[in-house]
């Protein structure tokens, strides 16, 4: 995230805290809905700043949020999104890649941690860490499930009904993915621990570079 976007995000976080509890809840739903759109984070934060100011102003006048944004917050958000240019396809692809890289770094660090622990306990293949088919599949599965959960939450931020069906399906998919990770133990590669550490650190550096240029 670029410096000016980060500064605006922090400024918005501070301003949001001065809203009433009801105002904060509504703003959170609006922001979550906007996060699921294809507009840039910079545009999202600018809109967030404007809406926060609108709500603060309304509260200072003793008005309700509905008096300002109307009875349907989702329609309000859709009207805003219709006026803002979506990110170009190449940029949104790079943003998705950056987010995927961060997730890969976290999963890689967990894998590395468990690998080192196994090595210390004498059950691993010291000084190498073995990457299995199951670990790759479960890593990809966890990543896709996480993307699906975020997309689901963003799209339904104004929804009142609490359907359990999708969550049960999601839980079963996640369970299957983790089972695959446990049972499919065919090795793909054996990496020396220093190489694995360098690879994960390298991915993190690439992520940081991309993050400083995007949004």
């Amino acid at each position: 995230m670029r410096r000016q976007t980060k500064a605006l995000l922090e400024q918005n976080n501070r301003a949001e805290k001065t809203l009433s509890a009801k105002g904060q809840e509504l703003l959170t739903n609006i922001v979550v809905y906007l996060r699921g759109s294809r507009i840039s984070t910079w545009d999202q934060e600018q809109v967030r700043r404007d809406i926060t100011q609108m709500l603060l102003d309304a509260e200072a006048r003793g008005e309700q949020a509905e008096d300002v944004i109307g009875p349907d917050p989702q329609e309000f958000c859709n009207n805003i999104l219709a006026e803002l240019p979506p990110m170009p396809r190449w940029k949104s692809t790079l943003c998705a890649l950056r987010d995927g890289l961060l997730a890969a770094v976290v999963l890689g660090a967990i894998w590395l941690g468990f690998g080192i622990l196994e090595a210390l306990l004498g059950v691993g293949s010291w000084p190498n860490l073995t990457l299995t088919v199951g670990q790759v599949l479960s890593g990809a599965g966890i990543l896709l499930t996480a993307i699906g959960i975020v997309y689901w939450i963003c799209r339904r931020s104004f929804s009142e009904d609490q359907k359990k069906g999708p969550w049960i399906v999601l839980f079963l998919v996640l369970f299957g993915v983790l089972c695959a990770g446990f049972f499919l133990r065919q090795p793909i590669a054996a990496l020396p621990i220093p190489v694995a550490i360098c690879a994960i650190a390298g991915l993190f550096v690439v992520y940081k570079v991309m993050d400083s240029q995007l949004d």
Binding site: D50, R61, V68, I69, G70, I80, L84
Partner: peptide
């Protein structure tokens, strides 16, 4: 409501028809 005017103001601002500046309000 202000929320109806806001998307329109966004459109005008993006198009360069209006410009915005921030100032503290008395409230």
């Amino acid at each position: 409501p202000e929320g109806t005017v806001y998307p329109l103001l966004l459109r005008l601002e993006k198009r360069g028809s209006i410009q915005a500046s921030f100032r503290a309000s008395p409230e």
